[in-house]
Design a binder for these strands. Structure first.
Lengths: 148, 148
DNA sequence: TATATTGCTTTCAAAATGCAAGTAATATTC
DNA sequence: GAATATTACTTGCATTTTGAAAGCAATATA
């Protein structure tokens, strides 16, 4: 159990003390939008996080209460990570970031229809994603089959 | 002019490549909500950013097009920093972060009425803040006088 | 003319990151 | 059942970034 240092009581600072780095929100993204749930899946993301950093951030996220982990009952060597309610509540933050980046990054990889839905139908989109993360049938930005 | 390394075309990654660290969003916060505009004012914020880091981040922010700077006409030794349109467009991101932090941080310093307005009247709040940042009369979370 | 202010730059130790290799506990294949 | 593979890490070490303090040059003020 490692504790997170607070620098001030500012809400922006509170958030940055938890996920203010280049990697943590990518793990959240993988859990939230990409349907990834295991160590190996996080390692395989495009940005290629180093394994020691990944282990460190998973611990941080768990200590901060944004994710939880459980061993797979069918396969005891596999550990399944998932978002807690606190983690799921970051959906609006991530959606706003996607909207902003899609606007300013000319070469963004954000799927157009996803960005449009953020702009035009954010409430429903949020409910879909949130429901998916809480229940069994997950929501994915792209279908699992078409996206390799 | 320093260039920002992209790790992937993912919109979350794009954002983190610009402001994925412990300090950059605090500078944005100071510009956006606190009415701060000079090097010395940023240095004086509660979190106590180191001067070399501040200089580095201001350069990054300027290269990324989130802020601009101009020398004060009345006092040539003073440089005034301000948000560009791209920087102002981060208002929704910051507001969602404030909302999230205020919910989960028991000791949050986020002003209650500000958080309530995010929850109940986000559109108007956004317009007020945005208008303030674009024009002359700035919006502040707290009035300048009461907050030291 | 002397002192302050303002916005940095420099130096250097300490901490974080990145890369590669190694390990322990399962799972699978031959 | 033994050998190989998978899974989730840990370890060691070089490189990079950060943090703290001091220094500096161009105004500005007393």
């Amino acid at each position: 159990m490692k504790k997170i240092k607070r620098r001030s009581d500012c809400p922006i600072s509170y958030a940055l003390d938890i996920f203010g780095d280049k990697w943590t929100l990518l793990i959240i993204r993988d859990l939230m939008f990409e349907g990834k749930r295991t160590y190996g899946e996080f390692l395989n993301s495009d940005e290629k996080i180093a394994t020691n950093i990944l282990a460190d951030r998973l611990e941080t996220l768990q200590c901060a209460g944004l994710i939880k982990s459980e061993t797979d009952k069918q396969k005891k060597s596999r550990i399944i990570y998932s978002l807690t309610h606190k983690g799921i509540d970051l959906v609006p933050v991530l959606l706003e970031i996607v909207k902003w980046s899609a606007k300013y990054d000319l070469k963004t990889g954000a799927p157009k229809q996803f960005v449009e839905k953020i702009k035009n139908d954010k409430e429903n989109l949020m409910n879909e994603i949130t429901a998916g993360l809480k229940g069994e049938n997950k929501f994915y930005v792209r279908s699992q089959k078409t996206n390799k």
